[in-house]
Simulated scan of single mutants.
Amino acid sequence: MLRKSLLALGLLSVFGSALAQSAYPTKPIKLLVPFAAGGTTDLIARVIADPLGRELGQPVVVENRGGGGGSIGAAETARAAPDGYNLGIATVSTTATNPAINPKIPYNVATDFTPVINIAATPNVIAANPQFAGKNYAQFLDEVKKHPGKYSYASPGTGSITHLMMEMFKLSTGTDMMHVPYRGSGPALNDAVAGQVPLIFDNLPSALPFIKEKRLVALVVAAPERIPAMPDVPTFKEVGLEAANRMAYYGIVGPKNLPKDIVDKLNAATRKVLQDPAIRKRIEETGSIIQAGTPEKFAQQMKEELAVYKDVVVKQKLTMD
């Protein structure tokens, strides 16, 4: 009798757990953006949050937690309970460049996250305040070569993808510019537009509105081909810097040990949202390319990008200082 009772309890426990997971979600879901409001990561998150909430039957609430090049917010997601109610937006900065350059990063990319889906990949752009002497790529390169150390550039933070990409650019071209890190793209863009910093390397979606309004001048873009909204702006590949012609990804991750059925449900719901022509249009208008792959594919992308930037950091002897 005891054995049967224990077996029954065990089956009840398994059944109850499965039932709870199949009922997921039963309350609002937090989607943490590890950067300040106003940047590309924030933009992507807010485009999908409401429709994803409708698809799942519970609100998806975006929260911003900037600082540390994205590591503070990413660490919060890594520490959260693996119940599906604390998710985060993962970027190349939080899962590749920042971990590659910062030995004190408070999480392990390979073991502390559960990849859910890669939402989109976006180009990156070097842009200048209109008062800057260079009005195109050739003039920009000539100006910074003539005046080493004179100009500074803004980035979303130390260890961000655009920080490391600009350092790659400097080493490839023999130029010297001062890095000014911010707590996200929003504040960096504000100062670049105001002329506090003459140059910025940023993700295209957050910079593009300022470029269209002629409040920033696009100089060169990291993208597979020229961007229709900026037909006169060359890609890094076109100017002979193919290694820097890298895009940034924006995906959803949860803490480690997130149950597979919850991962699959989130992945399927997000993919359905990204099939909506209106949602696709909003994302693609920023110059981004929809990804919407499997959790396994996103995990492989994260692994490969981390390896690329670890190699860059080692070869170029980059540090957080």
Rank of each mutant, 00 (worst) to 15 (best):
F15I: 13
G88R: 00
L9S: 13
D50V: 14
A207T: 07
T122V: 08
I262C: 09
T162C: 08
N203Q: 15
E285C: 03
V47K: 01
P34F: 04
K135L: 09
E55D: 05
T111E: 15
S71M: 09
N257Y: 14
V92W: 01
A37K: 13
T175D: 09
I89K: 00
N203Y: 06
S71P: 03
R226Y: 06
F15R: 11
R79A: 15
P295E: 03
N257Q: 13
I29K: 01
K30W: 07
G84Q: 07
I126P: 01
N245V: 07
S155D: 11
A292R: 04
V144W: 01
L266S: 05
I279Y: 03
D176T: 12
V116I: 15
F35R: 02
Y309L: 06
R246M: 13
L2C: 08
I279M: 03
L216A: 04
A128T: 11
V313C: 08
K303M: 12
L32R: 02
T91S: 15
P148H: 11
F169G: 02
D191W: 06
D232C: 03
M166T: 14
P234Y: 10
F169P: 00
T162V: 11
L19G: 10
K214Y: 06
S206Q: 08
V233S: 00
D112G: 09
L258P: 00
V314W: 05
N108T: 12
F113G: 02
R246E: 15
E213S: 12
A8P: 09
P277I: 05
Y182C: 04
K135G: 05
V314P: 02
N267P: 08
Q291V: 14
E305Y: 08
Q58G: 06
T173K: 09
V253S: 07
A154V: 06
S160T: 10
K260W: 07
E238L: 06
D264M: 15
I211P: 01
S172C: 05
I279Q: 03
T319W: 06
A100S: 12
Y250N: 15
G159A: 09
M320P: 08
L11Y: 10
L56D: 01
Q300R: 10
A222E: 09
A81Y: 12
E225H: 14
P259Q: 12
K303E: 15
E284F: 04
V60N: 00
K297W: 10
Y151F: 13
Q131L: 12
G174W: 11
I29T: 13
V312W: 04
L171N: 15
S288R: 00
P181V: 05
D176I: 06
G134Y: 08
M1Y: 11
A244H: 01
